[in-house]
Simulated scan of single mutants.
Amino acid sequence: MDLDLRKVRYFVAVAELLHFGRAAERLHIAQPVLSRQIRALEKDLGTELFVRDSHGVTLTDAGRQLRDDARQLLDMADGTRRRVLRAARGPRRLVVGFRAGVVVTPALRAFAAGHPDVEGNARRVEWDDQERLILDGTVDVAFVRRPVREEGLELRPLYSEPRVAMLPDGHRLAGKQELSLADLDGETWLHYATPRPGALPIRTIEEKFECVAAGTAVTLVPRSVAEQYSRPDIAYVPVTDAEPDQVLLAWAAGRRSPLVTAFVEAAQSLG
């Protein structure tokens, strides 16, 4: 039995909203049609995905498993569609994602030297979309930072780099030559993907700058970020016992692409 991706998309809408009416509105279809499609999917799979009762809609164990797997499945299907359309349009193109602080120009130049007929483009990615943009085909390969959700990805470690504290310029520790994590005990922290007690959630490096400069919180950043982003109201101090930041190349697992292979080789050749 092959999964019907349209039914899977319908399922994801209901699984996210846990409400057939609101899911139907999101999908721009009638609720009875949506209900029939979900029933058909359950019949295809041979199991119930939702518990429907007077209290509402909840996921079964099978439904939770499909919800966890479906997003990756749909992202990969979208990626295939994008790459096919891109190939049909031509000319050949390689889109390389990168996180803040990562310099992609040397790798793109090394790749272009052997592939002058390929258009190479760079696109910034963030911590919360780096995996999705690879799987859905928005980027072909990306320089990512840990933590990384590895499902569906091939990963190739490139290098690690020290982390430094990002502090407001008037901070009590801003003039130090180096720090330890213990020196930062009691500070309010910013966080991306890995929460810590009392930390403030943010999404982009720009949000980090504004929060730190305002004295709201402190954070750690890779040394390359400190080297690339200088502001008079922010100080950077090395933290000797902070876990190094890891940079990896990532691309969709199982995808056979000579261009991605060539770019990975070019990036690794730079040492």
Rank of each mutant, 00 (worst) to 15 (best):
L5H: 05
L5W: 00
L5Y: 04
V8R: 06
V12S: 11
A13P: 07
V14R: 08
E16N: 13
L17G: 03
L17D: 09
G21V: 11
E25S: 13
L27S: 13
I29N: 01
A30T: 10
L45T: 09
G46I: 13
T47V: 15
E48M: 11
F50S: 01
V51W: 00
S54R: 14
G56H: 06
G56E: 03
G56R: 04
L59N: 02
R67G: 02
D69T: 12
D69Q: 15
D69Y: 02
A70D: 11
R71M: 12
Q72I: 13
Q72D: 09
L73A: 01
L74D: 08
L74C: 05
D75V: 00
A77F: 11
D78W: 14
D78Y: 13
R81V: 07
R82E: 06
R83A: 11
R83W: 12
V84S: 13
V84Q: 14
L85E: 14
R86C: 03
R86P: 03
R86H: 04
A87C: 04
A87L: 14
P91R: 09
P91I: 03
P91Q: 08
R92I: 04
R92W: 02
R93A: 14
A100T: 15
V102M: 10
R109V: 12
A112S: 15
H115V: 04
P116S: 10
P116H: 04
P116Y: 00
G120L: 07
A122K: 08
R123P: 02
R123D: 10
E126C: 06
R132F: 05
R132A: 15
L133S: 10
D136A: 04
A142F: 12
V144L: 13
V144R: 01
R145A: 12
R146H: 13
V148N: 01
R149C: 01
E150V: 10
E151P: 06
P157L: 14
L158V: 15
Y159V: 15
S160D: 12
P162E: 13
L167E: 02
P168D: 10
D169I: 01
D169C: 04
G170F: 12
G170K: 02
R172Y: 05
G175R: 12
K176Q: 15
Q177W: 06
L179G: 09
L179T: 09
S180M: 12
L181Y: 07
A182T: 13
D185N: 11
L190D: 00
L190P: 06
H191I: 07
Y192M: 14
A193T: 10
P195R: 15
A199P: 11
I202Q: 07
V212P: 07
V212M: 08
A213L: 03
A217I: 12
A217F: 01
A217Q: 09
V218S: 07
V221S: 06
V221R: 03
Q228F: 11
Q228M: 13
S230F: 00
P238R: 05
P238H: 01
P238A: 08
D241K: 11
E243H: 07
P244E: 12
D245V: 04
D245A: 15
Q246R: 14
V247C: 11
V247D: 07
A250I: 14
A253F: 01
A253C: 06
G254M: 06
R256P: 02
S257V: 02
S257R: 03
P258C: 02
A262G: 13
V264I: 15
E265Y: 02
E265G: 12
A266S: 14
A267Q: 05
Q268I: 02
S269H: 08
S269M: 02
G271M: 03
